[in-house]
Computed example of a mutant assay.
Amino acid sequence: MATQQDQISLYQVSEINLTYRPKFKASERPKVTSSKDAYEILYNNWDLDKIELLELFKILLLNRANNVIGIFQVSSGGIAGTVADPKLIFSTALKACASSIILSHNHPSGNLQPSQQDIELTKKIKTGGSYLDIMVLDHVIITSDRYYSFADEGMI
């Protein structure tokens, strides 16, 4: 038989609060209309001391008008790769109320060609986004002087 203390502990749960405090007015946020826009926004917000050192995975979060809500760094890895957890990607997009996202990561080697893992991850996240009504608009691979767009290449 449960004691009164056991019954009380059944009702002790944490409350979850979601907040979002933009630092800029909607009219001041950059708008993404092309892969070049996405690249320039990402590149200008990348730690250039690390772009040829280690692989980072980031997402651009966009509202319905394709204005940037924010950039979120999903992971930091080594020279040859990093782990991009879809749960972390979508929990961030949902918390920000993003309508769409653009995936991005850098290739420290300077090679712009997507790996098979890049292609599979992109498909997986695009499929997951379709269930949540969060469009995956592109996946941009960045190097220190160029970029590769999955959308431009018809791969998304």
Score class of each variant (00 low, 15 high):
A26I: 05
I89C: 11
S34E: 07
S35Y: 00
Y39K: 09
Q116G: 04
L10H: 15
F72G: 04
S109Y: 06
Q73R: 12
G128W: 10
S27N: 02
F24P: 01
Y147Q: 11
L112P: 15
T127A: 12
D152E: 07
I69G: 09
G128S: 11
Y147I: 13
N106M: 09
A98N: 03
D152A: 00
M1N: 11
M1L: 09
W46M: 08
N17C: 07
F90S: 04
M155V: 02
M1T: 12
T3G: 15
D6V: 07
K124E: 06
D47T: 03
H105F: 00
N106P: 11
Y43D: 00
Y148M: 03
P114W: 04
T3R: 10
D145T: 05
V83R: 06
Y131L: 06
M135R: 14
N45P: 09
I125P: 08
P86I: 04
H139M: 12
I8D: 09
K124D: 05
T33I: 12
S100L: 09
T82Y: 02
H107F: 00
F150M: 14
K31T: 13
D37K: 03
L94P: 08
Y39Q: 12
S109M: 07
S104K: 05
G154F: 14
S115Y: 02
F24S: 03
D49N: 01
S144M: 02
T33E: 15
A93C: 01
L62S: 06
G70N: 06
F150C: 10
G129I: 00
D133P: 00
M1P: 11
K25C: 09
F90C: 00
A38Y: 07
